[in-house]
Simulated assay, not measured.
Amino acid sequence: MSNFQDFLMESFDEVEVIERTLKIGGKDRPMKFKPISAARGDELRKKCRKVSVVKGQKMIETDQDKYIANLIIETTVYPDFKSAELQKSWGVIGAEELLKAMKIKMVDGEYSVLTNLVSEVNGYDLSMQELIEEAKN
């Protein structure tokens, strides 16, 4: 049990880019995704937090819609939501504004599929039973 070889840095795999074709704006479009690190996920959650004080109690809320939008932006390799050229073609400035503009042209189910795929790419797709089985191995 004292063998820590499995936890040496070189034993960790690099994440791979995942290619999928999604129906976005009524057309099948090739897209590429890459999972973000847990550290980057923490940064995104902190960015999407709102702290308020209610009756002397510190309340921390996470804006889930903003978090999901940022997760999509950070996970999506292609198209690059941070591309100035792409933003210009949509008449917006900023990756979040680009995603908002694209959502206007999407059917709600298309955005839902994109959200689910990004969650899956980042490892949020595992059920409790799958997590238990994975932990056993």
Rank of each mutant, 00 (worst) to 15 (best):
E96W: 01
D13G: 10
S83N: 12
E134A: 07
G26A: 09
F7N: 09
I93H: 13
E134I: 04
K55E: 14
K50D: 13
K55L: 09
P30Q: 02
Q64T: 15
K136T: 10
E96D: 14
E133A: 11
S83R: 10
D28G: 06
D108K: 13
G26Q: 09
D13I: 06
V107E: 13
D80G: 05
M102H: 05
D13C: 14
T21C: 00
I93G: 10
K55F: 09
A38F: 02
K82A: 11
E74S: 15
L71W: 08
L86M: 14
V113Q: 05
P30V: 03
L117D: 00
G91F: 03
T21K: 02
N137K: 09
G26D: 09
N116R: 04
Q64H: 12
S37I: 00
Y124D: 10
D6V: 02
S11N: 15
I73D: 00
K50G: 08
M9W: 02
L8D: 14
Q5V: 08
K103V: 12
R29L: 09
Y78N: 03
V17L: 00
V113N: 01
I104Q: 09
D80K: 07
I132E: 14
K23L: 08
Y78G: 00
G41E: 05
Q57Y: 00
L71K: 13
E16G: 14
K88D: 15
D80Q: 07
G25C: 06
V15Y: 05
E43V: 01
E120S: 08
